[in-house]
Design a binder for these strands. Structure first.
Length: 263
DNA sequence: CGGCGTAATAGT
DNA sequence: ACTATTACGCCG
């Protein structure tokens, strides 16, 4: 037992120092958006009409009826205070607000998990059982390979929760990435090729971001830092414009920056 | 290492 | 809504 503790101590992750920046407008936008969406709801820059905005208690969604997928989800996580403990809900639900009306059955025996974008536990532990239930709407779900969803993606969700606890609060944008060869489940749900997640932390005047791009095919034990990318890259691959409410110099700087290590 | 919590699946 | 099963990280 002592030996295990010593080994854990030796291999525990080291914290990294941040970049420095100032931004006032973003903070106002963030408040105005009920504090879920950092520096504005992502804007659609691709062809056609783009995703439809859906609002929930603890997160917002840009949903595409064409792909039968959410294209982005945005939320804020606070530090966990009281233990708001509810059970994990037992089933997923059709979101009647969508035209696609995707059913949970469309995923059964396909080899794909029903992967949460806004995470069940991270939302439920901060905003309560009702908010947790909303994360089981199919408008929050994308097809994910089990090795990604249950291993690598899960570790990323645990990491964001740890950051929220450590830094008071963080903001998150997350969603799927599709290439040009469309592959669908039987019911018409398109299968993503990658998933992205952007973590945002504000500390006084400083803003920092951690953008990830993860492929479906992983073993699951890879270091998360190997999937760090830039917001610019995510914008190119998704046709979304994030953080447009930031003043241009800061937006340009932050979105072009590729971190090399985790916080 | 063992026990627990969380990510899930399938089947009744 | 419940059971059984699997895998992994955290914790002590």
């Amino acid at each position: 037992m002592v030996a295990a503790t010593v080994i854990w101590w030796i291999f525990r992750p080291a914290p990294a120092p941040p970049i420095s920046l100032r931004e006032e407008f973003a903070r106002r936008q963030t408040q105005a958006e009920r504090n879920q969406l950092y520096a504005g709801a992502p804007r659609w820059t691709g062809p056609g009409s783009g995703p439809v905005l859906l609002r929930n208690q603890a997160y917002a969604v840009g949903y595409s009826d064409e792909r039968e997928n959410p294209l982005w989800v945005g939320y804020r996580l606070d530090r966990i205070t009281a233990s708001q403990h509810g059970k994990r809900p037992s089933r997923f639900a059709v979101d009647r607000r969508t035209r696609a009306l995707t059913s949970p059955d469309e995923y059964t025996r396909t080899g794909f998990d029903r992967g949460h974008l806004a995470p069940s536990f991270n939302i439920g532990s901060r905003f309560g059982p009702d908010a947790q239930l909303e994360t089981f709407l199919m408008s929050n779900i994308v097809p994910q390979k089990p090795n990604l969803n249950r291993k690598l993606w899960k570790r990323l969700e645990e990491l964001e929760s740890e950051y929220a606890n450590r830094f008071e609060q963080i903001w998150v944008f997350t969603g799927p990435v599709f290439d040009h060869r469309r592959q669908l489940l039987e019911g018409g749900v398109e299968i993503p090729d990658f998933l992205y997640k952007i973590l945002v932390d504000e500390d006084g005047d400083r803003i920092r971001m951690l953008p990830f791009l993860l492929p479906q095919e992983v073993r699951g034990n890879e270091p998360l830092s190997q999937y760090l990318t830039t917001v610019d890259e995510i914008e190119r691959q998704t046709g979304l414009d994030f953080f447009w409410a930031l003043s241009d110099p800061n937006e340009d700087h932050l979105e072009a920056f590729r971190p090399t290590r985790l916080w």
